[in-house]
């Protein structure tokens, strides 16, 4: 059974800010471009077919029980609304710590994920539980602000006690081919994050092509990302099995090449336990068992948790649960 808190045995992420594990690749815009454009292309049909094929795995009985708890432990329980209040965040924190009010054996979630100004409230709500607090930052979700503003945003969250920072990349710069600008911004944010682990959000729905997602993944990892994350949840298309599979291939290959392990976080659009289990199959059969741990894989989600809990109850009791038997938050 997975533990609810990230395993203390995990080594701290190697400090890589400003120093690329692939040497000269990041020396200039043109060398970075040459490297990223030299990555193998992605065939969309084949990628999606592979993701779909893995989606047909049948996860039953003991494997399902294991996977449901693992998935619960990987949730970054998220609220990112303009209407968020400390009260709302407290409720969320309580749920993260005790997801199933009827069954205290349910694991806690990995983290709660909030806006920077809610970090303090969140810290308080999860204090002592081992549940982490993640904060979006860098002018989330659009990221359209000056670097100084973004860095201030990050420092603010860290100062409030955030354990993790979920930043967004400058998609405009990326799509315009200004890869070094994107890279340097990530490096700067990484530095500003200090001890907090950095999740780099690509907003895959805006990058539009799989080739771009692969390039962004490598760009993010070169710049020191601790996690690469699909989406903000604020655009039309967020995490999909295919784009997550592609990012899992990237972290697998990056570790093979550099020895550095990077986590993956699909976010947005994953609402059912069935979907979550498919993502875990993707992890298992692509990056491998080393990533089947909430230190290396997360779900950015909110409503997913209740479905996981209902499925968990069904497995325990043999009867289908209903929404009145899980908590609204």
């Amino acid at each position: 059974m997975p533990t609810s808190a990230p395993n203390a045995a995990h080594p701290p992420t190697a400090p890589r800010a400003g120093g690329s594990p692939l040497g000269d690749v990041t020396a200039s815009d043109s060398s970075l471009r040459r490297f990223l454009h030299g990555l193998p292309g992605v065939d969309a049909v084949g990628l999606e077919a592979r993701a779909a094929a893995l989606g047909t795995r049948s996860i039953k009985t003991t494997a399902k029980a294991y996977a449901l708890d693992l998935a619960i432990s990987m949730v970054d329980l998220t609220t990112l609304e303009g209407a968020d209040t400390p009260g709302k965040v407290r409720a969320l924190g309580a749920k993260a710590v005790h997801p199933d009010p009827t069954d205290r054996t349910a694991p806690t979630t990995a983290a709660v994920c909030v806006y920077p100004d809610m970090v303090a409230a969140a810290k308080e709500a999860v204090a002592g539980s081992g549940v982490l607090v993640a904060s979006v930052a860098t002018a989330f979700p659009a990221g359209r602000a000056a670097l100084g503003v973004k860095l201030a945003d990050v420092r603010d969250a860290v100062a409030a006690g955030a354990d993790e920072i979920d930043m967004v990349i400058d998609r405009g710069a990326f799509l315009a081919g200004r890869y070094l600008k994107v890279y340097e911004e990530i490096v700067a944010v990484k530095e500003a994050s200090g001890a907090a682990r950095l999740k780099v959000i690509f907003e895959t729905g805006e990058l539009s092509t799989y080739d771009n997602i692969r390039r962004a993944s490598w760009l993010g990892m070169l710049a020191g990302a601790d996690f690469i994350k699909t989406s903000t949840g604020k655009v039309g298309v967020n995490a999909t099995p295919a784009n997550t599979l592609l990012m899992l291939e990237a972290v697998r290959d990056f570790r093979a090449q550099t020895g550095v392990q990077v986590g993956v976080k699909p976010a947005g659009g994953i609402r059912t336990a069935k979907d979550a289990l498919k993502f875990l199959v993707l992890v298992n059969e692509t990056a491998g068992g080393d990533w089947l741990d909430n230190h290396w894989f997360r779900f950015g989600a909110s409503s997913l948790l209740n479905d996981l809990l209902m499925q968990r109850q069904k497995l325990a009791t043999g009867r289908y649960s209903g929404p009145d038997y899980v908590t609204v938050d």
């Binding site: 969309a44 729905g205 990058l207 039309g236 967020n238 999909t240 784009n243």
Partner: peptide, 13 residues
């Protein structure tokens, strides 16, 4: 030859 549906799943070719 593979094609790929533009934007069908948020990403494409």
């Amino acid at each position: 030859h593979t094609t790929g549906a533009l934007g069908a799943s948020g990403s494409s070719y």
